[in-house]
Design a protein around this nucleic acid. Structure first.
Lengths: 198, 198
DNA sequence: ACACATACTGAGGCATCCTCAGGTTAGAGG
DNA sequence: CCTCTAACCTGAGGATGCCTCAGTATGTGT
């Protein structure tokens, strides 16, 4: 559990390898969207027109396929955090980022669980990205706290607990109705400053 | 999905049937505790000293076994809600009940997902109990709102979203560290009344 | 003691996971 | 253009788990 390589899938060198890698990734995104992170790997391989062994060659564990399928989205999220950091409205920036984060975390069923796991386990494909995201979120939080807009005793860890929880609730009700904006507003109003007796 | 019988497991009539039913239930509780709600049913049957067919006879679907294994705990929760309803401190009562609820929801990994599902799907073994619990929680919420202690625009549905989210976060980190008291305090302070601009 | 509803058994079909021994091929170096 | 090899691909197969069902056993009321 705590040992082993992170299994970060890297684009292969040979042309046929890249072709298959991309085909698998495309099929995986479709399958995850439809069936969640527990989608059948054999089916994904079949959809990609590739033998099961090929899938395992590129993505030795399920989490590495999930990582590859969501890497870009996470990277966007991190980039967005940096951009928002210079906003004149730290609370608005935090709110916007939180909404984006929750939306991405619940791209498909099961994702938020994998990400929550990755956040604190280095031996995990998504650890690096999660770590970057953690810092991005923490920076935005700190800015909002420095402006006195968010309660000072809220830690980044707690922020991500709240975000994960909200994302999990969202992924439960998808795709019928999405109450997450309302839920997130509740959370947000809950963490903004006010006088509260000990 | 929306059809079918609820599959509520009922104690069988014959003596050997009851014996096996109980043995399966005991093995299931142990297995769920250890491996979560996805524990191997064949292993549970083996631990109970019973053939796999016997398990399926008593518990036609996995959710019915989960339901039977958690029925008492949920019933306690409902009973406790009724008791707390006469408390002179509605906010304290709500807080205490919420803590109990979160603790029960995260008895083992996967439970809160099943309960969240059951809450709104009648064709589900746990639906009846979840419904009772929903009413219990809603009553406590209304009492706290009537006393002006909790924001009036919070719906029971939202309350359970918050509870489920907190429970999910808790079940993720179990059993190493349990940050749920802290998280729940955050949520609670977030839903208590104050002036907030539109 | 008898009948039969109730209950038990476990083989077996199916889906999925994951590995690995063996075959194929892209493409660098000559 | 040829050779060679690392990179890549294949798919059979062992393992596990799900769930069903035809056949068998037994508790219990009469």
């Amino acid at each position: 559990m705590t040992t082993g390589t992170p299994h970060i899938a890297q684009r292969p060198k040979r042309a046929d390898g890249r072709r298959n890698y991309d085909a698998i990734l495309a099929a995986a995104r479709k399958a995850f969207e439809a069936d969640g992170s527990e989608a059948s790997l054999e089916n994904i391989a079949a959809q990609a027109g590739v033998a099961i062994g090929t899938l395992y060659r590129h993505f030795p564990v399920r989490a590495s396929l999930v990582e590859a399928a969501t890497r870009d989205g996470l990277a966007d999220l991190v980039a967005h955090a940096e951009r928002l950091l210079s906003s004149p409205d730290p609370l608005g920036a935090l709110a916007e980022w939180m909404e984006r984060a929750v939306r991405h975390f619940s791209t498909f069923r099961g994702l938020v669980g994998i990400l929550a796991q990755s956040m604190y386990d280095e031996g995990t494909p998504s650890y690096a990205m999660c770590n970057a995201m953690h810092h991005g979120g923490a920076d935005l939080l700190r800015a909002a706290q420095a402006a006195g807009l968010v309660r000072a005793d809220l830690t980044p860890g707690e922020l991500f607990d709240l975000l994960s929880g909200a994302a999990w609730v969202r992924e439960q009700s998808l795709p019928d109705r999405d109450d997450s904006p309302r839920l997130l507003r509740l959370v947000l109003e809950g963490i903004t400053t006010r006088d509260h007796r000990s």
